[in-house]
Amino acid sequence: MADFPSYTSTGQKAWHYGFRVICGAIFFFLVAPIVVIIPLSFNATMFFTFTPEMLRLDPAGYSLRHYRDFLESPEWQRALRNSIQIAPVATLLAVTFGTLAAIGLSQRHVPFKRAIMAVMISPMIVPLIISATGMFFFYSKIGLQGTYWGIVLAHAVLGVPFVIITVTATLVGFDNSLTRASASLGAGPVRTFFKVQMPLILPGVISGGLFAFITSFDEVVIVMFVGSAQQQTLPWRMFTGLREQISPTILAVATILVVLSILLLTVLELLRRRSERIRGVTPA
């Protein structure tokens, strides 16, 4: 119950609650589609509907068979393995290049700063189909099409803008006198970087890395053009499955991915709090 001042009119009260109902409905629209697949993935049948048994909460209506399918199918396992092998390496590349560049860009005198920034953000802006076809033709020419490294490079490109954005954001509040202090106390540039700068921008680097990771882990357009059968990833497999042979196994995979994103989200939230604490930005 909201605590209204005595002069609040009935209309205002009605609006107060009406507004919350509307917002509740929108939140429902946001979250329900993601949540609805979770119970469906425990469906004991091959269909996508809530069976009467499920609605009665009868244990017989539920089963782990779709998870078993996922774990036992060599195709899904290969896809999982590929995803796990591609995303971290692509992330590492994006984070390394991206962090260095973000530090470079954060200096006071950078010629063509805007243009450079625009180029570095552009992989996020250029429609994926254009990047994908461009890479498809060019990587074919240089022998990268259909290879593991082709996909890793392509995914690193996609991850770069996220790293640039998040690291630049943490560098905005960075106090340059800290590095000067470190230098005046005798630390070399490398030592200064790892002991002073890095711990402070680390939350930005990690959250940029998480974005890059999830981008690679979730990417399907580029992988379909640049990759070949041997590199089929989870999203690719899901795409084919959705188009051709929808089985609730896809929902089991989807549920696993939702859990994964909840985990990542938690990590990110903890990082944000830590970053605020370190930088002394205390929440009001």
């Binding site: 470079g104 200096q107 570095m120 461009g134 060019f138 770069v160």
Partner: peptide, 30 residues
């Protein structure tokens, strides 16, 4: 300072050039 900014951004720019900008340009030439 400019040089160091350049040296820090150059690897990424070179990387993006080869892995992203040239492929798109190459495709558009078609």
């Amino acid at each position: 300072q400019k040089l160091s900014a350049f040296l820090l951004t150059a690897p990424l720019l070179a990387f993006l050039l080869v892995a992203f900008v040239i492929p798109i340009g190459d495709m558009l030439l078609r």
